[in-house]
Design a protein around this nucleic acid. Sequence first.
DNA 1: TATTTTTATGTCAACGATTGCAGAAGTAGC
DNA 2: GCTACTTCTGCAATCGTTGACATAAAAATA
Lengths: 357, 357
Amino acid sequence: MSTIAEVAKRAGASTGTVSNVIRGTVRVSPALRARVESAIRDLDFHPNEIARSLKVNQTYMLGMVLPDVTNPFFPLIMRGAEDRALERGFLLVTANTDEQIERERRIVSALRSRRVDGILLTHTGGKDVDHIRRTIESGIPIVCLDRAPVGMKIDAVMLDNVRGAQDCVRHLIRSGYLTIAIITGPLQLGVARERLRGYEEGLREAGIEVCKDLILEGDFRENSGYRLAKDLLLQFARPSAILVSNGVMTLGVLQAFEELGVRCPEDVALATFDDLAGDRAFHPRLTAVSQPGYEIGARGATLLMDRIEGKVTKKPSVVRVAPTLIVRDSTRAQLSPERTPLIRNSDSYQKKALPSS
Amino acid sequence: MSTIAEVAKRAGASTGTVSNVIRGTVRVSPALRARVESAIRDLDFHPNEIARSLKVNQTYMLGMVLPDVTNPFFPLIMRGAEDRALERGFLLVTANTDEQIERERRIVSALRSRRVDGILLTHTGGKDVDHIRRTIESGIPIVCLDRAPVGMKIDAVMLDNVRGAQDCVRHLIRSGYLTIAIITGPLQLGVARERLRGYEEGLREAGIEVCKDLILEGDFRENSGYRLAKDLLLQFARPSAILVSNGVMTLGVLQAFEELGVRCPEDVALATFDDLAGDRAFHPRLTAVSQPGYEIGARGATLLMDRIEGKVTKKPSVVRVAPTLIVRDSTRAQLSPERTPLIRNSDSYQKKALPSS
DNA sequence: TATTTTTATGTCAACGATTGCAGAAGTAGC
DNA sequence: GCTACTTCTGCAATCGTTGACATAAAAATA
């Protein structure tokens, strides 16, 4: 691996001049510049960014900390962030936390040691945010994506979750579904609470009482969707529609539908956050609150780099991006409101009947 | 951001001793070690890996170059690689090429400048592999994943594509499907050619002639699946089964089925490489040649780090991992071999009839 | 032509860690 | 008291760049 000194020797110039040619900051005569450039090509010289980083105290690397890239929502965020980053000469160092706060802490610490210029973080819940605070204090800005730690002034780009859930509930009600259940995410997560709030407000504004038997707390993982959907569908009184708080849980819910022979939307309608499969492949096609993942990543990265470069100096703020409700077959049973089955299919089974709503 | 010198001062020790405590290479008396450790905690000191990298000429970073994380096959590879990397103290720098060789070249160059210790590369086709050769010559090992550049001695971890396609074709034939079409990937890619070869060998060993009208070259993208499936289904003579060379194209194929009202597997059976959705959600459930993405990533990373640490010094070699054929509903029409419709549904339309096979 | 101004290039001390070495200080054995 | 260890300090050199400053050469001005 050649160095600037070797290039300088071969071009008959000084190291300073070579540096000037590379950086393009100081003008160099065309003749010398040409000699230097050809020496660079001949030697296949790649300037050592490590040395440069040490000197100028900037690495042009961004940390990207996600729960799990295997969840199809996150690759979108990654791409959005990466595209913006590459445009501005930054590279992404990525790592997955698997929703474990301890792993998150270790990763953030490793990124600090590597002196990344900033971190895009999808925080794993919990009130343990000391590592975040300290990282920011140490001079490494953090922008949270999709989720933000509660009770902390920090930059974040998030979905307008309340609105997403509320829009969806409105749509369900307008379509004649009045007994609507929700499978939430883990309620220590802000996102999960916001979606629940949107659901509640959607019901309230229609004058429907919120019934806590219809609120089931999941953990955003497939298995909890499966389990809770089974619980729900085996109840004496089935809801007429279910809103699921993320796409991965919905996969579990569909599995439960299948196993119990529940038809969707004829028996129970289904709406979900996240538009995993888009317009295809799922059967039935799912009504979804679509999150603009790419945009979240892109805006987060832009904000972060603007902070790094001092282009943004205002106080931390939360940017909300708008969800899109995509109505598809899973909420399109041909029901007139009158026929809406409040209590249908009294299959025997556990649990008490619902209070009429 | 504090330095080793500040820690030393606060602990009443020398910088060398602090370094020894951090590295753990030289023994330090318990009392001093404790003082140093508490100084580190007090100052929230994170040793500057950049400076260390410069000195020891190793960064503990691995480049991970993929076509597109948004294709659900790649996150699995990423996770496999990352899990192994983190265990051994390496971090991943990831970037997407979007299948553009120029972008791949720029990214590899940026990674070289950053002095990553090695690169995991899913190469975008084309014979332009000079950047790869030169990077390896410069001392940065590369392990190719899933695809390898043709005609080059290089480490690679890949699926046994021939076998995957062949197994699948065998299964189709045994199930009574004798007119089998294939939608291939771009044939300048080795993977695509291998899958095609497996298909051909599967037919040949059953004594079925390979018919080139049944071989359609796609580009591994959704749209080409859609387009080619439409072509195929509008032919005078439909095949009884289609083998699709990757999962993303299959999404397009399903779309085409839907639009044309073609039932699967009753009208045409479908088998695909990649098991995107697993056992759920798709309708019908798809017979798939499943690639162990996680394992490919994990083994690639292990091999790469072994090279970096000099634990492996043998000549470059290609590791083949075994595919798994998962048989599901999309190839389970209740056909007896006799009834197998070779030419069915003579819908008028373009193209000439197939030679009987 | 002499002098000033402008421009192009060379020189060298940092950046923060590692590593090796010379030597100081303390402990232990004889 | 002498020798042999052990543990630590202090110092210097090093990794490859950068960028302020010095200097030389060229151009402009008097």
